[in-house]
Simulated assay, not measured.
Amino acid sequence: MVEFTPEQQAFAQAITDFCEREVGTRAKRDALTNNGADAHSDTLYRKMAELGWAGINVAEEFGGAGAGNVEMCIFLEEAVRNQAPIGAVGPTLITAAAYAKFANDNLRRDVLAGVVAGDSLSISMSEPEAGSDVGALTCRAEKVDGGWKINGQKTWCSNAHFSKSILLIARTDRSGGKHEGLTEFHIPADTPGLTISGIDTLGGREVNDLYFTDCFVPDSAVVGTVGDGWKQLMSGLNTERLILAAMQLGLARRSFDDTLAFITDRKQFGRPIGSFQALRHRMADHATEIACTRELVYSVARAADAHPERMMPREASMVKLKATETSKAMTIDGMQMMGGYGYAKEFDAERLMRGAIISTVFGGTNEIQRDIIGKTYGL
């Protein structure tokens, strides 16, 4: 089983204690999320920031905790397991890692200081005709005097409606292959020429369309090197997929715990329904899958800490695939085992199921993850 140092164990317990105090009841969570309509509570997240958790993987020189991937995964797993409504944490930590690697000194310090204080960030890649095939994007940035003029549409941009800024991937050159001529730009959310329009989903308003109309940004807004956007994106996949996996591990554990409590308490035919073999065996299978997933998450996290410059396409895709499929299976089965109560909003089962199912789509669909894994075996 996964073993932590005493310090890591204390850290995990501190997160649990904080969440029990701040969001330990449905009433407290509803008060922070407009009765569940909002996925992110800025108030709660900034309280976490005061404890140093929002900047968990930000270097100490920028005010962060300077922790590794293992500690980052502990934070994400425990926060999600304890139902902290901090839906912006995943995109923020993913985006912050890109600024830490590639932004110029002034921009890096400014953005990362905001992350440490609890600011939310977004990253924008997808377009109406460029989802899994990110290299097909057409949103363009044209060089003009003193900067860049951006035109085009982006879609499925998580949390842009309350983020401080957006890391945009746009096309700056069409002369080469589809993975060439892409560049990352820092776009403050209030930049003139940018319109943010929400998309209604099963989870409420979590994602957005972005429309750029002659949107000007200065040369200093370039993050990294002009034309190297694809390489920069690929270099962040270890972190991105670990973040998604750790969060879904926490969600799967929440679903398991809630389902176990329900089937232990709920009685039919004169006995707890969990005592029937059909349910008991299902829970045994899910417990095993969650334990395997946890081993994989922290194995990959430790490998990423030991070899920070190493690309791990196979392992990163495996951990994202395994964690999201595990959480999807657990939450769907959890709803089934709870019967009608699993479908009722009185319980959290239906919300957990929605959060698990979409996880198999964002961050690279699980079909894409399987394709990547297959290619690493020469297939």
Rank of each mutant, 00 (worst) to 15 (best):
D305K: 04
T293Y: 00
M311R: 11
M311P: 00
K267L: 00
A301I: 05
L296D: 07
D265Y: 12
H281L: 15
S275G: 07
H307D: 12
D305Q: 05
I290R: 03
E289M: 13
G270Q: 04
A284H: 03
E289N: 09
M311L: 14
V319T: 05
F276A: 01
E289W: 10
C292G: 02
G270L: 06
L321W: 10
A287K: 13
L279N: 08
A323I: 02
A304E: 06
S299T: 14
F269R: 04
R294C: 00
R266W: 11
D285M: 13
S275E: 15
R310L: 11
R310V: 02
P272H: 03
K267F: 11
D265C: 00
A278E: 12
R314S: 11
A304M: 13
M318K: 10
A287I: 10
P313A: 10
M283A: 09
D285G: 03
H286V: 05
E289H: 08
G274N: 05
I290E: 06
Y298F: 15
E325F: 08
T293N: 10
F269L: 13
Q268Y: 01
R271K: 14
D285Y: 05
K322V: 15
A304K: 02
M318P: 00
R280Q: 12
A303E: 13
A301L: 05
P272F: 01
P308F: 00
Q277A: 15
S317V: 09
S317E: 09
R294E: 15
G270I: 08
S317Y: 06
H307S: 11
R266G: 00
T293S: 10
R314T: 10
Q277K: 07
K322N: 12
E289C: 04
S299F: 14
H281K: 06
K320V: 06
L296P: 02
Y298N: 06
K322R: 12
D285W: 03
A301R: 01
F276M: 04
A303D: 11
S275C: 08
F276L: 01
A287D: 10
C292W: 01
T288F: 07
M312G: 04
H286R: 02
L296Y: 11
T293L: 13
Q277S: 15
E315H: 07
R302K: 14
A316E: 06
R310W: 09
A284E: 11
R310M: 13
E309A: 13
S299R: 07
A284T: 08
K322W: 13
M318I: 01
E295K: 09
S275P: 01
